[in-house]
Write a protein that binds this DNA or RNA. Structure first.
Lengths: 137, 137
DNA sequence: GCTTGACCTCAAGTTGACTTGAATTCGTAG
DNA sequence: CTACGAATTCAAGTCAACTTGAGGTCAAGC
């Protein structure tokens, strides 16, 4: 398995080298060797980075992401916690769905005040009823 | 329409007063009066806060949220932009779905290394192919 | 009319996630 | 063998989104 040096990994993942170094420092990904000074990564790191990017865009902190898929690609949380997280993401998906629909409504509804539009209110009530969607692990 | 003072709004929304003041300062929500020193809000603010909380949990910045549903409840973005945002959220939902499935896989799959598990790889490939999911408005 | 508690302002501090800059070190190409 | 370019370290800086703290104000209850 050939190694990628940091420049390659950066180019291939779209993540800047400074960020890769940062991630390496905090242990989110890990460099497996050096070529001279240059950090070398396994191709696996590319996969891990997809996960990190995905997780970040989902609003998870780097710590949370590390919990789900550690530096070695293995989670450092027990299965049960992972399922809880998966469920949290599910609620999050529900929330986003509401948000998306609300946005589409606002974009389409000709009413001057969306906040008072009954169908808009209804959308939100659903969202509010479904408790929160994000809580500590 | 009776007004809520900041304490009520805080209790009802779950958002701390300091944050409400902050949001008021930056114009994300707006207080419509004072009772003595106390900020008074319209009940509408409660609805707006649901949206804000929802948006934040979705990973949007306060600025972005303000763009979607301004302090007056009206977006300050044109319809087209809102649709673009809605589409972005749709992609985000797709990403989260992948993340959730990946997480469930990790929680369930007995294989020692998920990163090498073909079905896991497959999940991710889908995610990576679908370009990014979050870009500037 | 005075106390109390919830609010106020404003400046400064905090946290997470990076980025930037200066000074340095390599490996490769000429 | 020297120059070059791309990396390196480490400290410090930045930005968003708040929170904290000190010192002050108000209206409602007793």
């Amino acid at each position: 398995m050939k190694l990628l040096d940091i420049g390659d990994l950066s180019r291939r993942s779209g993540v800047p080298p400074s960020t890769l170094r940062y991630y390496d420092d905090i242990g989110l990904i890990k460099s497996v060797a050096r070529h001279g000074l240059r950090r070398q990564f396994e191709p696996l790191a590319l996969t891990q980075l997809s996960l990190v990017v995905l997780g970040k865009s989902a609003g998870f902190s780097l710590d949370e992401i590390a919990g789900m898929f550690g530096a070695d690609g293995q989670p450092n949380l027990p299965r049960g916690d992972l399922k809880i997280r998966a469920d949290a993401i599910d609620r999050q998906i529900g929330n986003l769905t509401v948000l998306r629909d609300a946005l589409r409504h606002v974009a389409d509804c000709p009413a001057p005040s969306h906040m008072e539009c009954p169908s808009f209110q209804k959308l939100l009530r659903v969202a509010t009823r479904r408790r929160d969607g994000k809580q500590r692990a």
